[in-house]
């Protein structure tokens, strides 16, 4: 059962790249970390990254981040959940995360 990838919502699946110490360490293995929408699947993420950055993706690992609690006044709720994706690129490909350096 293969899902048809909707090209039009691909770009919206990727929320932002993550720049943390851990993420920058992984850059050495040509792995890039992104927050994506929770409903995005690995094939969709692969397609989206390949579309947005014009690179070849060789692997995608995902994890659902723990739900962050948020209290507004007396009501306890949750922040929007995100899925985190670690995208491995084909050797030689790269994504420019830090422009103007």
């Amino acid at each position: 059962m293969s899902k048809v990838i909707d090209q039009r919502r691909l770009a919206d699946l990727i929320i932002k790249p993550i720049v943390t110490e851990k993420a920058t360490l992984q850059l050495e293995d040509n792995k890039y970390v992104f927050d994506v929408r929770p409903e995005a699947t690995k094939p969709e993420i692969k397609a989206a990254i390949e579309l947005l950055f014009d690179v070849k993706v060789t692997g995608v690992n995902t994890a659902r981040m723990p739900r962050r609690k948020k209290r507004v006044g007396r009501f306890m709720g949750f922040k929007a959940q995100v899925k985190r994706a670690v995208v491995t690129l084909k050797e030689g490909d790269s994504i420019q995360l830090f422009p103007d350096v």
């Binding site: 993550i18 720049v19 943390t20 110490e21 993420a23 920058t24 830090f98 103007d100 350096v101």
Partner: peptide, 15 residues
């Protein structure tokens, strides 16, 4: 944010 002090890569500092 996201880095311990002193562990920030140079490129990110400049950016």
């Amino acid at each position: 944010p996201g880095f311990r002090r002193g562990k920030v890569p140079r490129a990110i500092v400049i950016q």
